[in-house]
């Protein structure tokens, strides 16, 4: 039986550096050099102050679960084999939030404000930043 391919990021000019970093097991986010705030997802202008002065910085990879859900129905056919699985919003130490999966843990023990760290998971040809409790 053919496995249904998972939807993988379609890389564009905003995201190329980010996904290349993941491939090297490094989590890059942006920081605005004008207002010093961090930015995720990557973009060409700072969404806080509107300036163009954004640069890449490596994130610590640590954060907390801001919120989460345990999927009992799959978000598309490619995810059926993973059920149940956890999709979460992780707030990095740098203050930005990103959507991710919480893996390698007891699904029922996951909770808000839980401390987690990044782990890079190979999916198809790409490495996705996922998180696991510390």
């Amino acid at each position: 039986m053919d496995e249904i391919m998972k939807p993988l990021p379609i890389i564009d000019n905003d995201s190329k550096f980010f996904w290349e970093g993941c491939e090297k097991n490094k989590l890059f986010i942006q920081q605005c050099q004008s207002c010093s705030l961090h930015i995720f997802y990557p973009r060409i202008l700072c969404p806080h102050c509107g300036e163009e002065n954004v640069t890449w910085v490596e994130a610590s990879g640590e954060g907390t679960i801001y919120s989460y859900t345990i999927a009992r129905r799959a978000g598309g056919p490619a995810f059926k084999g993973d059920l149940p699985y956890c999709v979460a919003l992780v707030e990095l130490e740098e203050g930005v939030r990103m959507m991710t999966n919480i893996i390698d843990t007891d699904m029922e023990a996951i909770h808000c404000n839980q401390k987690v760290k990044v782990v890079f998971q190979k999916v198809g040809e790409m490495a996705l930043p996922m998180f696991t409790p510390v």
């Binding site: 998972k6 939807p7 993988l8 990021p9 379609i10 890389i11 564009d12 905003d14 995201s15 995720f40 997802y41 859900t69 999927a71 129905r73 799959a74 978000g75 598309g76 056919p77 490619a78 995810f79 993973d82 699985y85 999709v87 990103m98 959507m99 991710t100 999966n101 999916v123 996705l128 996922m130």
Partner: peptide, 18 residues
Amino acid sequence: AGRPPTFTAQYETPFGLP
């Protein structure tokens, strides 16, 4: 299923959020 993983959805759809 999520939206096609282009532009801002590329940071979301690959994680399978229903």
